[in-house]
Computed example of a mutant assay.
Amino acid sequence: MTRYRSFVAVGDSFTEGLNDPGTDGHFRGWADRVAERLATLEPEFRYANLAVRGKVIDQIVADQVPVAMAMRPDLVSFCAGGNDLLRPGSDPDRMAKKVAAAVRELRGAGADVLMFTGVDPRDTPIMRRARGKFATFYLHLRSIADLSGSLLVDQWSMQGLRDWRAWSDDRLHMNEHGHRMVAAKVLDVLGVPPEDDWRKVWPPRERVDPSAKRREDAQWLREHFTPWLGRRLRGTSSGDNVTAKRPDLIPFEAEDL
Score class of each variant (00 low, 15 high):
150 S>H: 11
230 G>D: 14
37 R>Y: 04
174 M>L: 10
96 A>M: 01
213 K>S: 14
207 R>K: 04
115 M>N: 05
12 D>F: 07
72 R>A: 14
112 D>F: 02
153 V>I: 08
255 E>V: 08
75 L>C: 02
17 G>W: 00
246 R>T: 11
40 T>W: 13
154 D>R: 01
181 M>Y: 00
63 D>A: 15
205 R>F: 12
79 C>L: 11
141 L>N: 13
25 G>D: 07
53 R>P: 12
225 F>A: 15
52 V>P: 11
65 V>D: 15
107 R>Q: 01
203 P>W: 10
194 P>V: 00
198 W>I: 04
163 D>N: 07
112 D>Y: 04
87 R>E: 11
137 F>M: 03
135 A>L: 15
247 P>D: 13
173 H>I: 04
43 P>S: 07
127 M>Y: 07
100 A>S: 04
165 R>K: 03
27 F>A: 11
104 R>H: 07
202 W>D: 03
252 F>P: 03
19 N>G: 10
19 N>A: 08
49 N>W: 09
117 T>Q: 02
2 T>L: 00
34 V>L: 00
248 D>P: 09
198 W>V: 02
68 A>Q: 06
250 I>A: 13
60 I>V: 14
63 D>N: 15
213 K>E: 14
90 S>C: 03
166 A>Q: 02
137 F>A: 01
60 I>H: 07
110 G>T: 10
61 V>Q: 05
235 G>V: 06
66 P>Y: 05
40 T>A: 14
220 W>K: 08
118 G>R: 09
103 V>W: 02
82 G>M: 07
192 V>C: 05
30 W>R: 05
7 F>A: 03
227 P>G: 10
117 T>A: 02
237 S>R: 04
97 K>F: 09
24 D>K: 09
61 V>E: 10
7 F>Y: 12
140 H>F: 10
14 F>R: 02
125 P>R: 14
91 D>K: 07
68 A>K: 04
246 R>G: 10
146 D>V: 14
135 A>W: 13
142 R>M: 08
230 G>L: 13
104 R>T: 10
11 G>M: 09
152 L>C: 02
144 I>V: 09
235 G>L: 04
121 P>M: 09
33 R>H: 08
36 E>F: 00
